[in-house]
C-alpha cells in the first residue's frame, strides 16, 4: 500500500509514501502540480478540485491510496485538451477571472459538468459550481463563460 501506480494527466506514475496523505498534497508536493489550490482543506470551497475517473472530487478529501489504479486529471491535464481549451478560452473572454484562486477549480467543475451535460441551463451551471466558492466575481461571468464554453465546444462534448 506504500507504493502504487495511478494515471496522472494521462501518464502512468508511481507514488511512494503514506497512502493516507491527501491527494492534494501529493499533487502539489510530490508531483509539483500546483494548479489545485488549498482554499479550506475541508471540502467546502472546491479550489482543489480535480477529476477522478472523470468525476470531480475535492482532492483535499481524498486519501491518495484511494486513487491507486485510477485516473486523476488535474487542471494541468485539462488545460492540455481540446475540451479544456474551449472552457479556458470561453472563461477568459467572459471576464470570469479575477483573483484566480478559485479559477482552476471552476475549470474542473465546468469540464465535469460539460462531459455529462453538454448543453446545460443556467440553473444547471449554477448547481454544478455550487461547491466552488468565489469571493470576487459574484459568479455571473463564470456562469456566462461556462455557457459560452458549451456553445464553443459543441462538437467536442
Amino acid at each position: 500500500m506504500n507504493e502504487f501506480n495511478f494515471t496522472l494527466n494521462g501518464k502512468a506514475v508511481t507514488y511512494r509514501g503514506d497512502p493516507l496523505k491527501r491527494l492534494l498534497d501529493v499533487l502539489r508536493e510530490d508531483f509539483g502540480l500546483t494548479g489545485a489550490k488549498e482554499g479550506c482543506g475541508e471540502g467546502e470551497c472546491g479550489a482543489c478540485a480535480a477529476l477522478l475517473d472523470g468525476a470531480m472530487v475535492n482532492t483535499c478529501l481524498v486519501p491518495v491510496g484511494v486513487v491507486a489504479g485510477r485516473e486523476v486529471t488535474t487542471i494541468e491535464g485539462i488545460a492540455g485538451t481540446k475540451e479544456g481549451q474551449d472552457i479556458i478560452e470561453a472563461l477568459a473572454d467572459a471576464g470570469a477571472v479575477q483573483c484566480g484562486f478559485c479559477t482552476p477549480g471552476m475549470v474542473v467543475a465546468a469540464a465535469s459538468l460539460l462531459r455529462g451535460n453538454p448543453r446545460p441551463t443556467e440553473t444547471e451551471i449554477r448547481e454544478a459550481i455550487s461547491g466552488n466558492l468565489c469571493r470576487c466575481t459574484g459568479y455571473d461571468m463564470i456562469v456566462s463563460g461556462i455557457r459560452a464554453a458549451a456553445k464553443r465546444g459543441r462538437r467536442s462534448w
Partner: peptide, 18 residues
C-alpha cells in the same frame, strides 16, 4: 471519506491524524 478527512484533518502536507 468526506467526513473523516475533515474530522481528522491535520496541517497542510501532513496526513490526517486518524
Amino acid at each position: 471519506g468526506t467526513d473523516l478527512m475533515v474530522k481528522y484533518r491535520n496541517w497542510t502536507g501532513l496526513p490526517p491524524a486518524f
